[in-house]
Design a protein around this nucleic acid. Structure first.
Lengths: 185, 185
DNA sequence: TACAAAATGTTAGAGCCTAACATTCGATGT
DNA sequence: ACATCGAATGTTAGGCTCTAACATTTTGTA
């Protein structure tokens, strides 16, 4: 009796198979059928676990974590400082082992046109949380949306660059993105 | 003897039919076959003019214009000021008639999950031009990518918001995005 | 063991997109 | 006007993504 359900294990096998296959052959050259087969299930089961082919690679367990961390910052902080603090805190909690997994996924994403284009969709929840954090500190609706979008875009760009390098601390990528937004001219 | 070729007219009819149909029924509920039929051609002809279903709505004639305007700014300007000036100059050249068309397209985009997610792909050229402009003014490679991504994201978010409103000058949306980036600390 | 729920499989089909080949249309020179 | 050559479009065929409805197996638990 395993502590995780059967569904969770199937899900994990699908992600593992997908990243492995795509790292070798590229996302567009690997069909859902092959990913499912490599994971020992049917194409149908794949789509019961992931809404789209992209999502098996894009789905990031850390995104909601980031959203929570940003939302949890004290109300006393200025708007953008709260966002920065939340991002730093969230990424500080990612250990080296997990960072390696993140990097594998980001490399597959960076190599695929379609996946890069689909990234905003997967970070929508984080963007929403950032926008909320800004709004609750007095930033107007529209400005909050714009600032949140810019923050996420900077973070995404920094992480994609980071994934291409070796032996670079994950924190550096985050700091670089925050530095740009913080007034890097 | 029309001044534009037959292919260009077919292309225009496809865009017109696509925006019209999608405005009424939503992007996901309109098939490529129906768009083609409404334009009086075959599905095959659609794909000879546009690489994907998304591109018929996303394809923006102003994107390269913006890229040129940013690249054309004098080298003497500071990096981010050059980007801002380029963006202002480009959008100032869009007349009311054209702005209306832009808005129709943006409304269709704003209403569709898939189209919003696919936007970065369509603005890649503009992002590249902005990154180049920054690089040629001494910003390092990675920082240029990040700043460009943030700029485009802010601009896109502002334009999508603008499209939802009525009788708002297009310039206001641009100014709002630039304002965020210009004093974001 | 027996049962209910969860997980997976099967089948069918619409829609996106590509490739190879055939056909029609349109601009150009005479 | 006419012929011609290339551009534009149509036809057919097929693989891939994704959904829906229904059947089957597996799992956890009484």
């Amino acid at each position: 009796m395993s502590r995780v359900g059967k569904a969770q294990r199937t899900r994990d096998r699908l992600v593992l198979a997908a990243v492995e296959l795509c790292a070798g052959e590229g996302f567009e050259n690997v069909s859902v059928g092959r990913i499912a087969q490599a994971a020992g299930v049917t194409e149908m089961t794949f789509y019961r676990n992931f809404p789209t082919k992209e999502s098996v690679v894009l789905d990031d367990p850390f995104d909601p974590m980031i959203a929570d961390a940003v939302a949890a910052q004290p109300r006393s902080l200025p708007a953008l400082a709260a966002v920065a603090a939340g991002l730093r805190h969230a990424w500080a909690g990612v250990d080296d082992r997990a960072a390696e997994t993140v990097r594998d996924r980001l490399r597959v994403i960076a190599a695929s046109h379609r996946l890069r284009a689909a990234m905003p969709q997967s970070t929508a929840a984080t963007a929403q949380a950032i926008a909320d954090a800004l709004r609750s500190r007095g930033v107007t609706d529209v400005d909050a949306e714009i600032a949140a979008a810019a923050t996420i875009a900077a973070l995404t760009a920094a992480l994609l660059e980071w994934a291409q390098l070796d032996d670079q601390p994950l924190g550096d990528a985050v700091e670089r993105a925050l530095g740009i937004l913080d007034g890097a001219r």
